[in-house]
Every structure is written in C-alpha cells, then in structure tokens.
Amino acid sequence: MVPLSYYLLLSAILFSIGAVGVLIRRNVLIMFMSIELMLNAVNLSFVAFSRFLDSLEGQVFVFLVMAVAAAEVAVGLAIIICIFRNKATVNVDEINLMKG
C-alpha cells in the first residue's frame, strides 16, 4: 500500500503549483482555475486521511467542498463577467480600484 505521506506530499505539490498560479498569472480566469487546483489538492489530502484513518468523514468533507466549489465557481465567474463588461479586460494587474 502506498504510504500516506506520499499522498500528502503530492497534495502539497499540487497546492503549491496552484498557489504559484494564483500569484503569477495575470489572466483572472487562469487564477481562478489555480484556485480550483488548490481546492482539489486539499480534497486529495482529505480523502487520503479518510482512507488511512478508516473513517468516511473525510469523504463527506470533500463532498461538501465540491458543493461549495460549485457555488463559488458560479458566483466567481459571474463576477468576472461583470468586471469584463465594465473594464473590458481580464488582467488583474489592470484592476486596482481598491488602491489606497
């Protein structure tokens, strides 16, 4: 059987890749995909823990995370469409309305 730490390491790597994507990409859609990637990395560790602790709670959490992700994607994409309508761009470095 593959040890737990392998799964966790894989989860950490995928999470970090997602984080890098969020940090360096300018296209807001790709940033958003990176966030999905991070969520999935966390899901993987949930399922792995569930398996190695002989408990189904982890899978329940993944189920809930998926539902939240679905709602989040729906609202998030709607926001992106709104921004695109107003600013005609999807580049985050051109959007700094909140600049102090």
Binding site: N43, V47, R51
Partner: peptide, 22 residues
C-alpha cells in the same frame, strides 16, 4: 484510495459541470 463515489463525483461535478462552465 477506495473512494469510488468521490471519484465519480470528481468527474461528474468538477470535470463535467464546473469545467464546462469555465
């Protein structure tokens, strides 16, 4: 990891619904 139901959901919800939206 013996989580067949989650695997199915992963494909249906993520790879299916969410990514189609994307």
């Amino acid at each position: 990891l013996n989580a067949q139901f989650i695997a199915a959901l992963q494909i249906i919800v993520y790879a299916g619904a969410i990514m189609v939206l994307f």
